[in-house]
Write a protein that binds this DNA or RNA. Structure first.
Lengths: 218, 218
DNA sequence: GTCTATAAAAAGATAGAC
DNA sequence: GTCTATCTTTTTATAGAC
């Protein structure tokens, strides 16, 4: 991954073969990492000749970056849907926060290719063109991270949480739940029995509510 | 990194060349990552022929694993020294915790090779023999993590903190300070101005004291 | 746009002399 | 134990036909 190639270049109306290549690349980059995943293998997995890959992507770098950004977009959308499902209407605050945290943790195991790719990106961070990296962060982790704040702010406005700085509270929620899980499982690469995941998330929510809970809503 | 090779094999009384190889490998694995770092380059950096590397290490895998575990040991010792310096005798709790957090964060930038290597390990976690990975975790991150608990327990026994579960409290301290910093900087790979690091650590300590602080000692 | 075939370079590992 | 020189495989990337 030499610095300097252009960014994503993801268009609506992808031709079929291009999509097949992107899917195969996501799987193989995720399973093997950047260097080990060969374009030969990606071509086979996609059912396409290697030359066709070069007709759609400038080189291996651009393919990787394109796949990374597109994957980040998908995961961010999935996380947004989970937020909407659990944090739009609050029934029982503790239960809703816990269910949100659990599903968010489960999303990591549901997109194993993508999160393996996230680990690769983190490892190769010095080799990725800064502009591409910035796009990836904004589309992916930063976006998932920041979108939580407005939900918390609304919950606080209804008097169910006592929050000064919603973005800091969102950061604390993330650190105490998903970050803790990810740190222990290497983004899902090492298996962790579900009861332990439940314990971590429940404990994280508990601590979060010690920080921001309101007696009446506890 | 194929699974199945033997573990560390680090002895006291390393011959000079072996040490030179290990140093060069640490630098190059850190700078380039596992796949990109070639044994040719490592040999040049070490001022040694490539054949000599194979006289000391079975193959590239074993070299990597040996370097990773030895580096983890060194960093863990450094972190232990920082703990001892700031948490053995408490003068002002908030100040001491903050100074500890700042120096711990600084250690990440002081060992850039090692933490670049940590990112590589995390990325290649599925390719590292489980036994080697377990040794690495115990010697490195897990050890740095767990050694904090006894210090907190002693501080609590002197009445300066209100702690039930010292290991959970240690986890919370780590999440709120060093993990937050590492997450934003990719273990120091992306620069973060020192004032921002200070802000994160201070804020993390503040939150930690909201959770475990004692009015008298606040 | 897509394919087969090939070039050109690089990397891990080894042979054999000293 | 250490070195130079070499083998073998794999990889990225491209030529040229259809």
């Amino acid at each position: 991954m030499t610095a300097g190639t252009a960014a994503g270049d993801v268009r609506r109306g992808m031709p079929e073969k291009r999509a097949a290549i992107a899917n195969a690349a996501r799987v193989l980059f995720g399973r093997e990492g950047y260097s080990r995943a060969s374009l030969d293998a990606i071509a086979v997995e996609a059912g396409v000749s290697k030359r066709t890959i070069y007709n759609h992507f400038a080189d291996k770098d651009e393919l990787f970056q394109s796949v990374a950004i597109e994957g980040a977009r998908q995961v961010t959308e999935a996380v947004a849907a989970i937020m909407e499902r659990h944090l739009r209407k609050i029934v029982d605050l503790r239960e809703d926060l816990t269910a949100f945290g659990m599903e968010r943790a489960a999303a990591v195991t549901e997109f194993p290719d993508h999160f393996a790719l996230v680990r690769t990106i983190e490892a190769e961070v010095s080799w990725i063109p800064p502009a591409v990296l910035e796009v990836w962060r904004e589309v992916g982790p930063l976006s998932s991270h920041l979108r939580l704040a407005p939900y918390l702010r609304r919950i606080a406005e209804r008097g169910l949480l006592a929050i000064d700085d919603a973005e800091q509270a969102a950061n604390h929620f993330n650190l105490l739940t998903i970050t803790d899980v990810n740190q222990r499982t290497f983004y899902g690469a090492l298996p962790l029995p579900e009861p332990e995941v439940t314990a971590i998330v429940s404990s994280g929510v508990h601590t979060f509510l010690r920080l921001y809970g309101v007696p009446a809503a506890g």
